[in-house]
Design a protein around this nucleic acid. Sequence first.
DNA 1: AAGTGGTCTAGACCACGCT
DNA 2: GCGTGGTCTAGACCACTTA
Lengths: 234, 234
Amino acid sequence: MTQPSETTSYRDIKRIVLERIRSGTWQPDSLLPNEQELAAEFSCTRTTVNRALRELAEEGFLERRRKAGTRVLSSPQRQARFTIPLVRDEVEAAGGRYRYALVSAELQPAPEWLSARLQLLPGQQMMHVRCMHYSNNTPFQYEDRWIVVDSVPEVTQADFSAIGPNDWLVQTVPFTNVELTFLASRADATLAGFLDVPEGEPIFTAERITWLQERPVTIAKLYFAAGYRMTTQI
Amino acid sequence: MTQPSETTSYRDIKRIVLERIRSGTWQPDSLLPNEQELAAEFSCTRTTVNRALRELAEEGFLERRRKAGTRVLSSPQRQARFTIPLVRDEVEAAGGRYRYALVSAELQPAPEWLSARLQLLPGQQMMHVRCMHYSNNTPFQYEDRWIVVDSVPEVTQADFSAIGPNDWLVQTVPFTNVELTFLASRADATLAGFLDVPEGEPIFTAERITWLQERPVTIAKLYFAAGYRMTTQI
DNA sequence: AAGTGGTCTAGACCACGCT
DNA sequence: GCGTGGTCTAGACCACTTA
């Protein structure tokens, strides 16, 4: 099956190490041989061993510390990786026809909960955008977003009836840090109307807060249609 | 400009490349110079450039293809990484005192929805475990789990009044693939009782399906207390 | 056919953090 | 102090993919 390659690659080493952990050859919390010894065993250089172990540590199976050595983590810190797609891509990937609709876009001073949340000055000017994303004209996501005008002054010129605020921001503010939160919220009357669900319906919700350097740029609350599931393979 | 360190490390290169993307020096969809040229510019070896670009590609900023070169992704595929902690760790990390309580553990044939979901034979024998996790004696999570007896025969001997099923599985089945889903569900009467919330309350829910090789091992539905938020920095 | 990234070798120096 | 992993160099061959 595999290529008849004679050399031991870092992929081979990863596979072998995982097998030894799986089979219990290397018990949880036990120390692995050091890189030099493993390199000798696998007839390769320490560089190759290093890459294999480094990636396994990155993936949450090993813990590595200088001088202390490399240890098998007792309960692997499996990390879930979600690729957060653009709404349009998500809809189209599911075979739907995407449609965007602006609900409102208004300049407003930041309400108190927002100032506190984003560490803004009291009453700082914000662009408040609300919009809908449809898949085949069925409600897919309701978006409630605030953009800090001081951080993105061009936002006052943007035409959000033509382009969604997320698409606009991606094009305009090239780069950022993001804090992402998932939660379950309850559909109030407004939300129930936009998403076409009964009031009180549980709504899967994502909150994204975005910074440019240390400056807050935007907070978006994304309310997904009923029954939405966010899935990933680990 | 740069720090007085004379060598250019792969971290420096990552930083510089990100700055050039951020500042628009390298436009989205444009091609970067090849590794050899960058190595010359940064006065380092191609190996070092390679590591920097490889990691940036891994992080979703660049796309690399042999012969085609390295390209700036127009909309960076930012990936959210959630570290999924053990319940006990999560509670204790928040400063709470953890308590586990078994609700029920029974051998049952798999109901139809479950057989379909896990691709089981009809009526296959399952261990059905329900339990609660408390933080300072306040409900934190209700767990409803099914374990495939054929995949983990030892489960019939396990004493789930002493140890939680997740802890037990981690110790017993060393290794697996996982499918993780987040959703918002509604508290029915049972759930409302265990979590001490009104019926109908939106409940943040995680579903984990675990496989050993190709064999399904367990499906767990984890219902979190009201107001739970799952947060990550990207 | 040819250019690009993918990976490996053989060696070196260094920083961290146990003991 | 000193052993371990962290990183870099200089070079090589190779695999893939596109022109």
